[in-house]
């Protein structure tokens, strides 16, 4: 039981600036909380506002119809199709190259000139402004190769832009696999590649999948790089839904920009509102599915 505290006890606060420090601490804590909650609030406001602007625009017709050049009532069907089409093309190029490079850097490369050059180039690629990468695509695919504006050109430019992020995801995923697993496999006489393919890669499948989906969510919103590579138009009428990689392929995000800045349609504001909302919803779907899938996979592969 507590004995009564002697009244003569030394007070805890000696000659000190304690009250002042406590105040500073409380103020700082309050500011940090405000900043953090501010971010969450900001996101909530964004989502709410885009819903408010765009919800009434979205209809089956809007989501599926081809866009209109001059009159009102155009849809964004081909643009949605192109966004996903270019995304898939980009992933087809990006995933193999980025995982391979990531595996090399993480598992094989020793510190040295080659390694640091690759790192420097990857970091530079990741930092190149999207529009600058777009101009590189314009030079190579449009001016040198004479492809004109194509889905393929857009996808290749996007590939260069997103390689580094996926390489990093790969490296982090591989790094998360415990060293003991590698040693266990090598000790059984497996070669390094066998170990990577049968032990390390399966062990990092969950973070890899999550990372790829999150990056896919970013690729689908890329715009500046596509304006001068994939173009700002779609083929007219039914042929707008076009699987030919050598056709111009305006994506939804490009459409949002183009309608605002160069479009002639009278309902440009509605189309912008609807497109912005659809883009946001796509990003949300990608983020949520990345989380769900990542959690499911890691449960599956780590045995609950």
């Amino acid at each position: 039981m507590t004995a009564t505290t002697p009244s003569t006890a030394t007070p805890f606060v000696r000659k000190d600036n304690a009250s002042q420090r406590r105040l500073a601490d409380a103020v700082a804590t309050g500011l940090l909380w405000t900043a953090a909650l501010g971010i969450v609030l900001l996101l909530a406001v964004f989502i709410g506002y885009l819903l408010y602007l765009g919800a009434h625009v979205i209809s089956w017709h809007f989501l599926t119809a081809p866009p209109s050049e001059i009159s009102a009532g155009g849809g964004i069907g081909p643009e949605i199709f192109n966004s996903f089409y270019i995304l898939v093309l980009t992933l087809i190029f990006t995933v193999p190259v980025a995982t391979a490079a990531g595996i090399y850097l993480q598992e094989y490369a020793r510190p040295g000139l080659f390694n640091s050059t690759v790192q420097f180039c990857a970091e530079s690629l990741a930092t190149i402004p999207s529009i600058v990468m777009g101009l590189f695509g314009l030079i190579v695919f449009v001016q040198v190769l004479h492809w004109h504006f194509t889905a393929l050109g857009g996808a290749l430019a996007l590939t260069l832009l997103n390689l580094p992020a996926l390489m990093r995801v790969t490296q982090e995923g591989l790094a998360s696999v415990p060293q003991a697993l590698r040693e266990g496999s090598m000790a059984l006489g497996a070669t390094k590649w066998q170990t990577i393919r049968r032990v390390v890669l399966p062990g990092s499948i969950a973070p890899l999948t999550t990372g790829i989906i999150l990056i896919a969510g970013r690729i689908i919103g890329e715009t500046a790089v596509l304006i001068y590579t994939a173009g700002v138009s779609v083929s007219p009428g039914r042929s707008a839904f076009n699987w030919n990689p050598f056709h111009p392929a305006e994506t939804l995000s490009v459409h949002l920009w183009y309608t605002h800045s160069e479009g002639l349609v009278p309902d440009a504001v509605d189309i912008g509102n609807g497109s912005a909302l659809v883009l946001l919803l796509i990003v949300l779907v990608f983020n949520i599915s990345a989380r769900i899938l990542g959690r499911g996979l890691s449960r599956h592969f780590t045995g609950k």
Partner: peptide
């Protein structure tokens, strides 16, 4: 010195000073 450092209203910061 007889005073509970886990008592109410005791600031741990001043405890760690002593």
């Amino acid at each position: 010195d007889g005073q509970d450092i886990y008592g109410k209203d005791v600031d741990p910061v001043t405890i760690r000073h002593r």
